[in-house]
Design a protein around this nucleic acid. Sequence first.
DNA 1: CCGAAATGCTTTCAAAATGCAAGCAAAAAG
DNA 2: CTTTTTGCTTGCATTTTGAAAGCATTTCGG
Lengths: 126, 126
Amino acid sequence: MPKDKPRVPKPLKNQAGDLLRSPCPLACMLDVCGDRWTLLIIRDLFFGRSRFKDFTASPEGIPTNILADRLNRLLRHGIVVQVPAEDGSLRLGYQLTEKGSALRPVIEAMRDWGLKWEPSTKAEMG
Amino acid sequence: MPKDKPRVPKPLKNQAGDLLRSPCPLACMLDVCGDRWTLLIIRDLFFGRSRFKDFTASPEGIPTNILADRLNRLLRHGIVVQVPAEDGSLRLGYQLTEKGSALRPVIEAMRDWGLKWEPSTKAEMG
DNA sequence: CCGAAATGCTTTCAAAATGCAAGCAAAAAG
DNA sequence: CTTTTTGCTTGCATTTTGAAAGCATTTCGG
């Protein structure tokens, strides 16, 4: 009679291999983007900004070490990729993948909420 | 001739009186909800959970000190209110205001993204 | 009514994340 | 070639987080 192995709950991981807190898609999304900066970088990408210096130039003033850290996380998760800068220089820019572009409805819903419920905000700032 | 006062940029504040990083509605939204836990509490409220213990019982396992802190922030921002618990006890529960309920499209967009792009998640978990 | 358990927090403290400033190598500009 | 800009990294102080324990109040079971 084969004895039962102790059944340890299978550890769930996201696409980057990080452990998930739960199988909830919202929790999983927050494990990737749940901080004060990540979605602002993605906003900037939607605005057509693509270079490190562009992100640092946004009015919120993200610290450069945080920016580097977040860009790496977004790369690991396949939300952005690096591509040759369009100005023909040797430098690289960042670009949203399909997975990253799919965040547009999230950004728009958050922007709409901010516009409606926080009177001191204005559309398309940042 | 009156001399020009040095024109200091007017410090923007949100509804709770906290300083804003910028007038961007997205940045403002993230100043309120931009962390790993707040939107999970709001998810729970949409699921009909309303008591402190209900939130602690969710599978992500929010620490009780963080939960207390986040609930206070949501109260300050008018996203939730406390109401007598529906079971007739002396205790209070939390309930979404109109401002809080307006976050539904945000939660849904994030859930949809998680479902589509993170294969190990399942709908309506949590 | 009494004792025990549950609830809704607060406190404590170590560990991790954040943010500011400075430093620095590679690339671009002059 | 020299200077400036870019894209980071490093160091360090401060803040936030999270695990655990503590605790007053409320509810439950008998």
